[in-house]
Design a protein around this nucleic acid. Sequence first.
RNA 1: GGUCCCAUCGUCUAGCGGUUAGGACACCGGGUUUUCAUCCCGGCAACAGGGGUUCGAUUCCCCUUGGGAUCACCA
Length: 493
Amino acid sequence: MSSVRTRFAPSPTGFLHVGGVRTAFYNYLFAQHHGGTFILRLEDTDRERFVPEGVGQIVEALDWLGLEPNEGFWISQGQHKNIEYIQSERQKTGLYQKVAEQLVEQGLAYYSYVTPERYQEYKQDAAHQPFVYRKSMEAEFHDGKSPGPEGEYPIRLDVEAIRTEFHHLADNGVAWHDEIRGDFVDNLSLIEDFILIKSDGFPTYNFANVVDDHEMQISHVIRGDEFISSTSKHVLLYELFGWQAPKFVHLPPINGLDGKKLSKRTGDTNTLEYRDKGYLPEALLNFLVLLGWNDGSTQEVFSQQELIDKFSLDRLNTSPAVFDPKRLDWMNGSYIRELSIDALYKKVADFWPDEAQAADDAYKKQVLGLVQERLKYFSELPELTRFFFVDLPVDDSLISEHKQLKKLSSGELRDLLEKAKASLEASSFTTDDLTQKLNDLLEQTGQKPAVLFSLIRIATTQAPASPALADSLAALGKDRSLSRIETQLKHLG
RNA sequence: GGUCCCAUCGUCUAGCGGUUAGGACACCGGGUUUUCAUCCCGGCAACAGGGGUUCGAUUCCCCUUGGGAUCACCA
């Protein structure tokens, strides 16, 4: 077993963001590539922003994507599994409190009396200058009470104390290495006395993250680059505890088309919306993996196994990528086209138009086969196939706006349709025979396909677009095709 | 404002000192006996700017500009 252990550690403050999916996937691929372990940990220490449904939504999305962890929290049949990977559960064991109090005993951390409000005032006063909070500022806030057992006051790290006790940190600063961005170093004077345990007894991200990554023996922390600036805090903690820090990889952000952070306006951000619109998870993943990674070749479409085989940190990009929905559509369409009809049929089960309810499987499969190549995502299915299941009202604009047909008089149109009707009445309505009959009709009328076929197509579908004419007619069948031509004829008067 | 990150076609990207700067998406033409799509062919389109280093910079260094992150009892 490889010693590579990665983790995805979302916060249930809402749904799973597609940007988070890319992060999860990179963690997953890296672990799989090395035969390592991919872990899911829930970071729910912020009880104020906690969204109860968030937990289920995150797992639902990961499950849909097939990113089940090798280890860690999961929900199976409504049951929460491995809750020891949930930080709020871990907090109940007193784990974080114990570690923090050890630091207090060592004189490296202290109970802090400053209120958030007063802290903000301090900051305001320090406008335009760097502001770092220090223990020496505590004196004026001490109300004489001693800290209660419930953690009435938060615990802060005492950086000044660290400076005097850890000379190498005082001299060299806190240094760390990012696997794709190189070396970083922060002077201790830049690191403020940050909070380890909040006054509600829950650990902060900066603290819990370190304790848990160490306990869970995480080898590689692959996360968004918004954490670059707080990594020195984490590394400082590892140094204090004498723990070996994991390797760090900070991913660039994913932006929307407007160059700003991906938002509702530039594309859906909720992963489950992609499922509901009918995107294939493997296509979404393939699209996302290329937003910041490539194998150096011109290959665009990768199977999951290929990605596992080829994924490596050194091919990761450091610059931001823009999420282009059109490229996703292309990717999804290409995945859809690769599917067998039977496989595709199973996947689109929930996307048929209401009118298809009564249709049998064989017919729906036939229709599906005709639209497969033009389907970009499944929720397009109704508009693409409705006319196969129900007679649509005659739409005059289809003819009046047709660049060739609009030149013909209704008499000429009627004449053509009558001939078509007569010809089709003699057809067995197999695709081959229909093709034959249609070709004969071309000769008989002396018309161009653009005119004749368009007219028949419009009369029989009443749709702006449809699959190849002979195929569509064969699927519709003789009765339906002829009756629709009849309807169009009557409409032309 | 302090600290930090980033910078090749509109978009995703290849490039790791010498290339006609390549591919893909999108877009625009053309072809495949109608439309839309698929597929095929073709086209449009980029090294942010300025200094260095070098025989030679898209590539290495610095500055400028632009974009972004962070400066919470959020993660």
